[in-house]
Design a protein around this nucleic acid. Sequence first.
RNA 1: GCCCUCGUAGCUCAGUGGAUAGAGCACCGCCCUCCGGAGGCGGGUGUCGCAGGUUCGAAUCCUGCCGAGGGCGCCA
Length: 583
Amino acid sequence: MLHGDVSVELGRRVATALKTALDVDITPAEALVRPSNRSGTDYQCDVAMSLGKRLGRAPREVATDIVTHLDAGDLVETSEIAGPGFINLVLQRTWLEQHATALLGDDRLGVARTERPRRFAIDYSSPNVAKEMHVGHLRSSIIGDAIARLLRFEGHEVVPHNHLGDWGTPFGMLIEHLVDEGWTAAAGHDGHTISDLNGFYQEARKKFDADPDFATRARGRVVLLQGGDEQTLALWQQLVDESTRHFDKVYELLGIDLTHEDIHGESFYNPYLAEVIDELEAKELTEISDGAVCVFPPGFTNRDGDRLPLIIRKSDGGYGYATTDLATVRYWTRERGVTDLLYVVGTPQAQHFAMIFTASRQAGWLTNEHRAEHIGFGSILGEDGKTIRTRAGGSVKLVELLTEAIDRAAAIVADRSELGDEERHAVARAVGIGAVKYADLSGDRERDYTFDWDRMLAMDGNTAVYLQYANARILSVLRKAGEAPAPGTPVTLVEAAERDLLLKLLQLPAAVTSATETYLPHRLCTYLYETATAFTAFYERCPILADTTPEDLRRSRLVLAQLTSKVLTLGLSLLGIGTPQRL
RNA sequence: GCCCUCGUAGCUCAGUGGAUAGAGCACCGCCCUCCGGAGGCGGGUGUCGCAGGUUCGAAUCCUGCCGAGGGCGCCA
């Protein structure tokens, strides 16, 4: 058993024992085997107690039957019954040692590829054209990217799609304003930056609110845009192009696997909207309500107890986001054959997505073969406990936030660094960006979290820097050793700290699988932190390079150090976080 | 009003059916001629919001209440 989780393997053995002893059928997962936090016990099995009632027997008797029939002599040293019916399992030292040696030559460090690969479409980041990316896009970008990396690593196909806000009313407004300012399709306006566009947008908004005549023209401009008017489209394209250049730069800085090639903005679905409505009408799912074409998915009501609609064509004939979102489901399942749809969007939209999914099932775009899931996340809060904002009350620009992160990291690294300028800059970037990402990923994504520079850049505790530092220390030892442990190097477990560390290293597959299947990256973070902690204990108690350490033990410990570094490096890479060789 | 989410140590957070609820920070004491001191060990952190219920077993599941945030028709 090189790949896979030890808990699952033990669960298999327990399941077999139950079948043999009592003719009971359970899955390995139902065997309730998990790492134990009791000292002297590696894993514990809790299934006897849950089976006691079902079988009408005392839990300890069931446990005895399991232990008696357990065929696990190849990896289990002792299995003892304790308390009301716990089975405490201790793994064989030789099995652990051989496993460690084998792991050294495995790029996946024991993590199996999925046996049932699926095709995922994942919607994340989704900024707006003509607006600078701000802190509101941070979580979606970071979490979506981490989930995409995790799924790919498990062997799934992942198609990211960046659902840009690039269509509809705001662009009629903005383009009309630019025409007022003398823009033409032919001229080209490359000299303008994204922040210019941001400014134009705000001016347009003001004019729209203050000037009824302009508002009317702006609405007309939307019609021209959506009707495919060449001049209008050309201006629109200029806005999209400039914005895309900005997005690409931010993704590059942030280290996110998204580029302009992944863009499927709202405009992309425009050609499908009429068909979407036709199909919904043909299936008799639509109703006219107050002049708007609506779908009323069952199970949703408003404050008065009335059914809640998805408005798919507004009374003025325009389309809203519900239509686009339905078109999105239809496109990815029907045209692109995806099995899974993920939406990394803030929790306030939970009800909206629930309605979209329900309606999509009614329409037949989602079937029992598909899974659609809204991956919600909480807000980033400032020191005052409210949604983070600048002092002026505006939204914090992403570029500025990330630049500050890098600057702060540089200040931390600068002190004791023997690194040259170039490497120091790269390190500051990895540390600064890593800190921001890890702060976002290390807590349960559904909860709000408080943004705090000092905490996210702390050298102690569950932070990216702590993990990066632990890794750099290990690499330093390996450099000093002058040799990387060769594949096949035997491992000998002497101290408890060595055993504890190895047991933790063996739990990587469980951590990766758990984080991936639940779309909760913080489970991987917690695991990595525990691993780094276990390494620290090992490092304190088990001298590697000391003269008093025998040659074979030294090599054995180098293997453990090497494995730890590999686990940290792989784990952080799955979160999109870099691991500098030196800090 | 209805619906959703959340409430764990002083602070920031893990733990979501299993044994005595865990980390980091902060606080106190001690240790270390240390392979990277951005160290190590020890100490106390607790009505797991409150009250019931289910269960052999509940921070975890159910119900009610209190508190915080969010959602509830033509913005996305």
